[in-house]
Design a protein around this nucleic acid. Structure first.
Lengths: 198, 198
DNA sequence: AATGTTAGAATGAACGTTCGAAATAATACT
DNA sequence: AGTATTATTTCGAACGTTCATTCTAACATT
């Protein structure tokens, strides 16, 4: 075995463990909140002792930081995926994918985790910075998409409106769990067309 | 002094004290979150001892409950205010008052407090119920407004979209503190017209 | 004097974190 | 190959701190 192989194996092992902890932490944070979830509870969910978590994360804060990084990456990937769509199908695709966005953003687990991260960002400057960096990245990418591919002007306002709308869905589903997604979608599609039309 | 007068005076006194505590708690919750803010810190901000707060509130949970009640009432009043507008001015008014809504919902203190309440609602069923009751009340009132005053059909979807949009602003301002409110407003007004048109 | 009001120390529970030892895996040596 | 040695992983008990809450006694007001 080459040293490279060994290190890679060890790293992979550690990565699996880290992912295990992050999965457990996500569940606990959703159920009890970041401050409500104790390390003991997270450890139990991850199937290891509390003390052992500290071999993979410096402290509790580091766990939520890693969790935010992981979520940010997923979010970025989704957003950057739009760039692969040919320009003559883009508007149509955006309208049609609206319901996928609604489904994701109103998913009980995902929306709860999003809100938990948002709440933490309010008093943890590092988390806030991570969210803002991710927002800037995806916002500029979407602006570029609307400007270059669809040839729109005044892209800042259009993107802010779309981001406000989809970003607001987790709160919406919390305030009205019986939300009629289809009724909302009818007007959401109308809004997308109105905002992304010249 | 009549007993009535005495009781009224005492009640008023107690009400002032309660309001003092709620004001202090709101500040602390915004700064450190519900779980991060200690009773000692709240007491200091309110200008009294920690133990004394328990003469006005049974426990810490009761404070946030009262705070949510107070915010809900303010929210309801604002929403119900639209009913006083004559029908031929309503659409115009709604479009024009959009910037007032944006200002309120993106105000640093107010939006932070809103998000704090949202976060607490995620794991405190009583708070969640209060938010949902308030949402149902204001949602139905707004649906009635659109249906009866503007004569619109399919009001559920229209209202859900508008509520998602304004409700999403606190998250938006957190993710992008440099949000260009004017740019957003240009499209927000467009959306209001598109959603509230027949 | 009596009743209502306040302060702040005391209490007990919960939590994040540390630590030393036990178990397990990996490596070296005969 | 089989044993000895070293390294790594894992555990769970112990520590120190923090925090909500209670309690007792002092203070003010009527």
């Amino acid at each position: 075995m080459s040293p490279l192989n060994e290190t890679a194996k060890l790293s992979r092992r550690a990565e699996v463990r880290r992912a295990q902890i992050l999965d457990a932490a996500a569940i606990c944070f959703v159920e009890q909140g970041f401050h409500g979830a104790g390390m003991a509870r997270i450890a139990e969910q991850a199937g290891m002792s509390a003390g052992h978590i500290y071999h993979y994360f410096e402290n509790k804060d580091a766990i939520i930081e890693a969790l935010v990084d992981r979520e940010s990456e997923l979010h970025s990937e989704k957003m950057l995926g739009f760039h692969a769509i040919p320009r003559d199908q883009l508007l149509q695709e955006l309208v049609e994918r609206a319901d996928e966005g609604v489904r994701t953003q109103t998913d009980p687990f995902q929306s709860a985790l999003n809100l938990e991260i948002i709440a933490e960002a309010q008093r943890n400057p590092l988390i806030a910075e991570k969210l803002r960096a991710n927002d800037t990245e995806t916002r500029l990418a979407f602006q570029k998409l609307l400007g270059e591919t669809l040839g729109l002007s005044d892209v800042e306002g259009r993107v802010e409106l779309m981001f406000t709308l989809f970003g607001g869905l987790p709160i919406r589903i919390l305030r009205n769990p019986d939300l009629d997604r289809e009724a909302l979608l009818r007007y959401l599609r109308k809004v997308i067309r109105a905002v992304l039309a010249d």
